[in-house]
């Protein structure tokens, strides 16, 4: 019995480790080669960047000779501002939907989460026209507004589900303590939703940081290019400068990676806290 159990245990880990390698191998490939000289990349793509094959040139050329720092700050601005707006406005709307009863509440609740099922990309044609008419073409503001609109439905959905599961009594208690409805939101509800903020943040951030569609269409200009779009153009431009391409890819990976590692524990807790029940 014990032996059998051990065998099956080993089998499980073999499968999981095999898949882990499959998931990690391509990533490792990029990171390893980003530190190598062009020759070394082609001579020995699997070799580690040690000795004479090590080269920081790729990173140097990315960080100095290009607009990469600009792209990076564009992406960071767009992602962070959108994220704050999604979290704040999403939590506010979810609070209103879960806490108060008013005529049309069900309708507005459904309306606001429709966007989960109907991707905003389908409106691209009219959206571009709208953005141009508003004078927002080639601005980061355009991206921020669109990403906020895109991220709100899922954020509202997750927050509402979560807030409905939270006891009403704590808000009533705050009312008896004399807090206004606004202060109840900021001082009681915001601390309460903290466990799911990570979940919402990760789910909202990934598609924003990695998006290619809207930067390509709404703000392809040099000044407003995001990292993702920048890397995409970069690859086309410098197909010879491998070190630089690989380094730029690595740079593009890092922020999401950091964010994910910070939040990964809370992420699962948030998902299992009943936020995504299907």
């Amino acid at each position: 019995m014990l032996i059998k159990e051990r065998l099956s245990n080993a089998g499980i880990h073999t499968v999981l480790i095999a898949y882990s390698l499959l998931a990690l191998f391509p990533l490792a490939l990029i990171l390893i080669n980003s530190f190598k000289s062009r020759k070394a990349i082609f001579r020995e793509p699997m070799g580690l960047p040690i000795g004479d094959s090590f080269s920081g040139k790729g990173y140097a050329s990315v960080l100095s000779n290009s607009d990469f720092p600009l792209y990076f700050s564009n992406s960071l601005t767009v992602t962070c501002v959108s994220l704050v707006l999604i979290l704040l406005l999403g939590a506010m709307a979810a609070h209103a939907l879960s806490e108060y009863r008013f005529p049309g509440d069900t309708f507005i609740g459904i309306y606001l989460v429709l966007g989960i099922m109907v991707p905003i990309r389908l409106g691209t044609v009219a959206l571009l026209e709208l953005i141009v008419n508003l004078g927002l073409a080639n601005t980061l503001t355009a991206l921020i507004l669109v990403y906020t609109a895109q991220g709100l439905p899922i954020a509202i959905f997750i927050f509402t589900e979560f807030l409905r599961s939270v006891s009403r009594e704590i808000k009533d208690s705050a009312r008896i303590d004399g807090l206004s409805e606004y202060r109840i939101f900021f001082e009681v509800v915001i601390p309460l939703v903290r466990p799911v903020i990570a979940t919402v943040a990760v789910f909202s951030m990934i598609p924003i940081w990695n998006d290619l569609w809207f930067p390509l269409i709404l703000s392809p200009g040099e000044e407003t290019r995001t990292v993702t779009l920048g890397v995409q153009q970069f690859i086309g431009q410098y197909t010879v400068n491998w070190g630089a391409v690989l380094a730029s890819l690595s740079v593009a990976i890092v922020p999401v990676l950091v964010m994910y590692i910070i939040f990964s524990k809370q992420l699962i807790r948030g998902i299992t806290a009943g936020a995504v029940k299907g």
């Binding site: 606001l112 044609v125 009219a126 609109a149 895109q150």
Partner: peptide
């Protein structure tokens, strides 16, 4: 009148309507 409900709902509803729902309908 419970204005705060409006205050909580309006910003999200506005952005979502203008930049998500309107473009789809307009398309």
């Amino acid at each position: 009148v419970r204005w705060y409900i409006l205050v909580f709902l309006a910003p999200a509803t506005l952005i979502y309507t203008v930049f998500a729902i309107y473009p789809i309908i307009e398309s």
